[in-house]
Design a protein around this nucleic acid. Structure first.
Length: 379
DNA sequence: TGTTCCCGCCAATGG
DNA sequence: CCATTGGCGGGAACA
């Protein structure tokens, strides 16, 4: 049937959903921001999901990736323990060790990358050991583990750790990690599907400042630059409690958008719902400036000249007040302020689902508090 | 268009 | 047995 309605309508009014705000990268930043502070050491998945205002599923993604780098560690069901960024170096060393031990295998061939890069990766001689051992002994059907996001993440890291070059293209990584993407040969089943996972990993990694998304100098092909081996790689998302400078993926939007669903919300009064909200036009500009000259006059900071970072660093959270129900929220905030003096809120917009989240959050906090009592609460 | 990747169904897993 | 985990890939936002 003519499906020319619904989704298509939001072609304009871009200030209603904004997929970027939902990205794993942003979510990860929020997550980090939320659990990096003070003496946090236990993290409940339910609580995390509630506080970040996302589905449980998303938390699993974040957590799995973070665990692969040592930032977190699974403690028990529904519970992880926070290790911090300080644990990253150690984890990387172990990963590298492991990689060398098993002779990490790069890609099958090395001809697919026509242009490739100046310094291709691959340190040791091309050992042809196949990554997925076909040892049918204990392999059985636990392919699940082999296909896990966590493992993929670790292999991704190993790729960088075992190469001298710090620039690896998306294609190379994809080819190395999972059987060849383009071109048929064997792995014609999925491939492209797996690449999505790569994007996921890349997003949270850039949020950790372990890598940076870029392009190849001349090719414009998407690539990743490793940033995790510097003296003290920049500084995680924020050394302590300052707003970091680099984020690149950010853009000017702030609150008042992000509907709960993927589709637009009701188009009530068109584009003029909020009084001093903001103008939706800016997002277009930000995107535009993306491909500007990056070597002109950028001494202000790294990249991302003026667009400030979104996400956890939202200025003052709720600009609007006067909501009756807000009273309850208010209390919650205070309560939380007590614990971390920071407002984790993902953002706020619609009042329907949002409120639901709060209710949920309340419950979670309650449970959380009861469960770990003094563990997380510092007061 | 082609690329990036969010969303959530639903199957393994584990208690 | 059911709750927790988490592959997996459709398809929408984005470039």
């Amino acid at each position: 049937m003519s499906s020319l309605a619904s989704r298509e309508s939001e072609t304009k009014n871009p200030f209603l959903y904004n997929r970027k705000e939902k990205s794993l990268g942003v979510l990860c930043s929020n997550f980090l921001k939320l659990y990096n502070r003070d003496g946090v050491d236990l993290i409940g998945l339910d609580a995390a999901a509630s506080r970040l205002g996302v589905e449980r599923r998303r938390i699993y993604d974040i957590v799995n990736i973070l665990e692969s780098v040592g930032v977190l560690s699974r403690k028990a069901k529904n519970q992880y323990s926070w290790k911090g960024f300080a644990a990253i170096p150690r984890a990387l060393d172990e990963l590298k060790e492991e990689a060398l031990r098993e002779n990490f295998s790069a890609s099958s061939y090395c001809n697919s990358a026509r242009v490739s890069n100046e310094n291709e990766y691959e340190g040791p001689s091309n050992s042809k050991i196949n990554m997925q051992e076909k040892l049918s002994v204990s392999a059985k059907v636990d392919n699940r583990k082999e296909k896990s996001l966590g493992l993929l993440t670790q292999n991704f890291v190993k790729l960088f750790l075992c190469s001298d070059a710090d620039l690896i293209s998306l294609d190379s990584a994809a080819t190395a990690l999972l059987g060849d993407i383009h071109d048929s040969t064997a792995m014609r089943n999925n491939s492209a599907a797996k690449v999505r996972r790569l994007y996921d990993i890349a997003n949270v990694f850039s949020s950790l400042n372990l890598i940076e998304k870029t392009h190849h100098p001349e090719n414009r092909k998407p690539a990743f630059r490793w940033l995790g081996t510097k003296e003290n790689f920049k500084n995680g998302p924020a050394t302590d409690l300052d707003l970091d400078e680099s984020k690149r993926r950010a853009f000017g939007t702030e609150i008042t958008n992000t509907t709960s669903k993927r589709y637009k919300a009701d188009s009530s009064t068109d584009r003029n719902s909020n009084p001093k909200a903001n103008m939706p036009t800016h997002m277009k500009q930000n995107n535009l400036k993306d491909k500007h000259d990056e070597n002109s006059l950028e001494q202000h900071s790294k990249h991302s000249s003026k667009d400030f970072v979104f996400g956890p660093f939202t200025p003052a959270s709720v600009p609007k007040v006067g909501d009756p129900e807000n009273k309850n929220v208010r209390r919650v905030q205070d309560w939380e302020n007590l614990a971390s003096s920071y407002r984790p809120q993902y953002r706020n917009q619609a009042l329907s689902d949002l409120f639901g989240h709060y209710v949920e959050a309340w419950k979670s906090w309650y449970v959380e508090a009861a469960e770990k009592e003094q563990t997380q609460q510092i007061s």
